[in-house]
């Protein structure tokens, strides 16, 4: 169990605000920090790793206190057993793939490095420098390196946002595998809803200055609605035609179009929407 509470003054586009969070994360789960940008998701992850110090806070991981500002306890970064995967991967440019992973180990164990290289499909690339790798390959090295350190907690800062769909899906499978096989509690910062649905068992929603434990990802959205065909999508485009608007939405990676009356209110690109239909209405054909 991870008990984490913190207060931290932050700056966002809309000005200064104080992030206040009190959450507990069950051990061994793969959970998501979800919310718009500038709501403190990454900062919270960094506070857990010890890379950022909260104004005040308390952090306990599996019974060990990592931070207790009331008692002036603060474990330095390098004494917290975390695996942090940065948004830009942060691989050591002076080391090869293999050396990056070796460097992360406490005691050098070639055999474990070999296993990790195999699991992440990096064997052929092991003697390359990171600058010669693609984004997906770098991401795999970053994950392998984080795991080589044998962390109690895996912290992933939007690890997949810069990758194409195919790579994304395969790394998502690897993440799920890591969580299952090694049972490492994993926190994933993401604003990709479909990713959260696919991977996470629990979502913490960052709403500006507070953080809410939403439970299962399905609870993030309006499940009060009876429609059985529900998707979460993102508005790509909103065009007025006659007295209606045609919304182009992307659901997963499929673009769809929906017509709404112009009186319905405004939709801007980037807005998240729920698309629902009664189970009776769609037509369906076997492919």
């Amino acid at each position: 169990m991870i008990e984490f509470s913190a207060r931290k003054k932050l700056l966002s586009n809309s000005g200064e605000f104080t992030l206040s969070l009190d959450i507990s994360i069950p051990e061994g789960e793969l959970v998501a920090f979800f919310g718009a940008s500038g709501t403190g998701k990454t900062t919270s992850l960094r506070m857990i790793a010890g890379l950022t110090t909260p104004d005040c806070g308390y952090l306990q991981v599996n019974g060990n206190v990592w931070l207790d500002s009331a008692k002036k306890v603060q474990l330095p970064v390098n004494q917290r057993p975390v695996g942090f995967v940065f948004q830009n991967y942060a691989l050591f440019p002076n080391m090869t793939v293999r050396e990056n992973i070796l460097f992360a180990q406490k005691e050098k164990k070639e055999k474990e490095v070999q296993t990790l290289l195999e699991v992440f499909g990096l064997e052929v690339l092991q003697h390359r420098k990171p600058s010669l790798l693609s984004g997906g390959q770098q991401q795999r090295v970053a994950l392998a390196r984080a795991i080589a350190r044998k962390p109690q907690l895996l912290l992933l800062d939007e690890p997949l946002s810069a990758l194409d769909m195919e790579t994304r899906t395969s790394i998502q499978n690897e993440l799920r595998m890591i969580n299952r096989e090694w049972g490492i509690t994993t926190i994933l910062v993401s604003h990709d809803i479909s990713e959260i649905f696919r991977l996470c068992s629990r979502v913490y929603s960052f709403n500006g200055n507070t953080v809410e434990d939403k439970g299962a990802p399905a609870n993030l959205f309006n499940s009060r609605l009876s429609g059985k065909v529900q998707f979460v999508g993102e508005v790509l485009e909103c065009v007025q035609e006659d007295i209606v608007r045609i919304l182009t939405l992307v659901v997963g990676n499929t673009p769809v179009k929906v017509v709404v009356p112009a009186t319905e209110g405004d939709y801007a690109p980037g807005d998240k929407v729920l698309i629902a239909s009664k189970a009776f209405n769609p037509i369906i054909r076997k492919l």
Binding site: A218, N219, N222, S223, R224, L225, S226, G227, A276, K278, F280, N281
Partner: peptide, 14 residues
């Protein structure tokens, strides 16, 4: 009847 959705007013776990 199959074109109408129901929506719970207060939040209820489904």
């Amino acid at each position: 009847p199959n074109d109408i959705f129901l929506q719970a007013v207060e939040k209820v776990q489904s």
